[in-house]
Each structure stands twice: as C-alpha cells, then as structure tokens.
C-alpha cells in the first residue's frame, strides 16, 4: 500500500473502519455501543437541567443546596455519571449573566445539559466567547441590558457547570412543570434568557 497517497476516505468510512478492526478482534462487548448511545442520544438531555432549575426557582432549600453542592443537588434527580462528577451551578442576578464555554474542546455537563451541540463545539464560539461575550450573545439573539456584566466560565478542567438564571417576570403564577418549559438548552448554557411567551 502506498502511504503517500492522499486520504480520500470520508469521516464515516474511517469511523466504520476503526469499528470493524475492533469488532474483528472481538473487543466490542455486546450491547456496549447501544447502551452508551441510548444515554448520549436520549437520557442526557436539557430537560434534566430544566427540572433542576425549575425546582430551584420554587424551593429555596433546594436552591441553597444546588448553589452549595451542585453534584448532590443533581444527584437527587439521578443526574450523575460521566462528565457530571463535579457540578457547579452558576447563579445569575439581574446585573450578572453567566455563560459557559469550553475553549479547549467541548467539555460539558452531559447528564444535566445533554451532549454539547455542534455550534458549542465549533471554532467560532470557542474562539470568540471569552473575548467578545456581549457581541457573541447579541449575534445569537440575546441583548443584555446596558449595566449587566458578563462572566464567561471556561470549562478547562473537571468542574461541570449549569447556569441558574433569574426567574423571569410574568412567571409568578406558573407551577414547576410550566416553569420547566422556559428552561432550554441555551438557557442552561447561558446564551439565552428564559422568556415567558
């Protein structure tokens, strides 16, 4: 084989080639890929983070625990496991907006936010958010008030974050279930504010 030739294969062909080599050596346990894929594609979801935030909005004791020990608070819902071992909740105030990024790659609080979306792992967000936070949020569609400060959290080690936003005006009469619907993946990352329709 000529190793100087240009690589002409597709990413999918390379993924399947690696899979094939491991399978031929019988190194892939039965059900391993299926189980992990179920977790990644379905069980780890921003709906989990929405439950955590909605509870923190209505239950002061839980809110206190979430801010003191995010790992213990999320474990009450069973949200534990890989990339959820040291969870820190970031408390917004009317004048402080927290936003999460991983400038080095893609680290994210998998069990609570779900796997990171493409744009979050993309070069633009990773390069620009730490330096141009307000501009990036504006481009995405979130205009922050003049006096608000942005604090960007770069997930560069093992802490895994979620944003605890301010409960929005107009949500006073809503129950926990209705509140959950206001908390999207982008709200948990911090690039969006919860909105009452």
């Amino acid at each position: 084989m000529n190793t100087d030739e240009k690589t002409t294969s597709t990413p999918g062909e390379r993924a399947r080639a690696l899979f094939q080599v491991l399978k031929q050596k019988e190194l892939i346990p039965a059900g391993y890929i299926e189980q992990l894929t179920q977790l990644m594609a379905h069980d780890w979801s921003p709906e989990n983070g929405a439950r955590v935030v909605a509870k923190a909005w209505v239950d002061p004791q839980f809110r206190e625990l979430l801010l003191k020990d995010g790992t213990a608070a999320c474990a009450q819902f069973g949200y534990t496991g890989p990339q959820g071992e040291y969870i820190v909740a970031l408390e917004d105030t009317p004048t402080l907006k927290n936003v999460i990024v991983c400038s080095l790659c893609s680290c994210t609080n998998w069990p609570v936010l779900g796997l990171p979306p493409e744009w979050y792992k993309g070069f633009e967000f990773r390069a620009r958010l730490v330096r141009e936070g307000r501009t990036v949020l504006r481009e995405l569609g979130t205009e922050l008030p003049e006096g608000a400060t942005i604090k960007v959290w770069d997930t560069s080690a093992e802490s895994r974050y979620l944003v605890l936003p301010v409960r929005p005006e107009g949500s006073e009469g809503m129950d926990e279930e209705a509140l959950r619907a206001l908390i999207t993946k982008d709200v948990l990352i911090g690039v969006a504010l919860p909105q009452v329709a």
Binding site: T37, M40, A41, H42, P46, S103, L104, G114, L115, P117, E118, W119, G122, F123, E124, F125, R126, A127, R128, V130, R131, V136, E139, L140, G141, T142, D154, T184, K185, D186, V191, A192
Partner: peptide, 23 residues
C-alpha cells in the same frame, strides 16, 4: 482557540432545536 481571531458568526440562533437530533 480562546481569543483566536478571524472567525465569523457562531452558526446558531438561540433556542433553535437543531440539537434534538444528537447524532
């Protein structure tokens, strides 16, 4: 990449549901 210049807009609009198909 933190601070690296030369990139354009983040290819996303807030609360788009494109993430729902994880893979």
């Amino acid at each position: 990449l933190g601070g690296f210049q030369g990139f354009g807009k983040v290819p996303h609009t807030i609360n788009s549901l494109s993430y729902k198909q994880v893979f």
